[in-house]
Amino acid sequence: MRNSINRIIAGIALVWLGGSLNHLQAQSALDLRINEFLVYNDSNYVDDFGEHNPWIEIYNSAYNTVNIGGCYLTNDLNNPTMYYIPKGQNVTKIPQQGYLVFYADGHETRGIQHLNFSLEESKLIALFESNGKTLIDSITIPKGQKVDVTFGRIEDGSVVWDFLEKATPVANNQTKIKITSAEIIGQMDPTGIGMAVIAMTIVFSGLLLLYLFFKYMAKVWMRDRKKSKSITPDLLQVETETDEISGEVNAAIALALYLYRVQLHDTEAAVLTISKVSKTYSPWSSKIYGLRKNPR
């Protein structure tokens, strides 16, 4: 029994560890990926100078904007700081799940997106963090690169690379019909019964966990109270006895207190009486106060 419990705990720990390693999300420059590149550009994507040059697409896999400014691009791991991507530029801010293209043409004077090395003479592409030491991502350029055919991840950010059917600079590498998870569920479970069973199980599990927690917490609580009652019978008796008063009695006491407080006043209510005043003269009936004086 104990062994099986240990196994279950170990299994859960493994799942947790595996999951956490799989889904490390830094939400920073570490989320950037080299996503697609073209080495021989004959009649493909045109740069901002109207020329066909090799290009590299960087993809931001995070769900927030990441600034690539300050990072380095290189084609030599021994020289990680080969091209410094300037900071303080709007263009270097890559939106969530967005893209930025660099032109590897060796013409760095043409702007910040033009690198100081050319892909045609490169064997790899690497992206380093702003400290110039931490490697964010790298890809070895396979031999046999084709003219106007890009090499990239088959899906944005995925680990599998291949020649892509369509060049997709600043766009999703996945260009085939993509079936959403909702559509897959619709195909696999057209009646909705499978979904109902799975979802109800999850809802029950969530509330069952809460139920078990509070069921056993209450037991522990009651046991502690009994213990404390037996240890200090005189001092704590009064306190624990008051704890055991049922909800109805508490409600009655609360209502009585509320009514008592509502009926309390800082000053007593005034009593008005209508009876004849014995004194015949009163300022209230005096004509002197009733007449307007003439202005002087």
Binding site: G186, P190, T191, G192, I193, M195, A196, A199, M200, V203, F204, G206, L207, L208, L210, Y211, F213, F214, K215, A218
Partner: peptide, 25 residues
């Protein structure tokens, strides 16, 4: 909290969600 098994009723009543889901499909 005083009667935690009542939590399970809150789960059971969610059947309405998935019943309507199946009919809508």
């Amino acid at each position: 909290i005083s009667n935690p098994k009542l939590m399970l009723i809150g789960a059971a009543a969610q059947l309405g969600i998935f019943g309507a889901y199946a009919i809508a499909l």
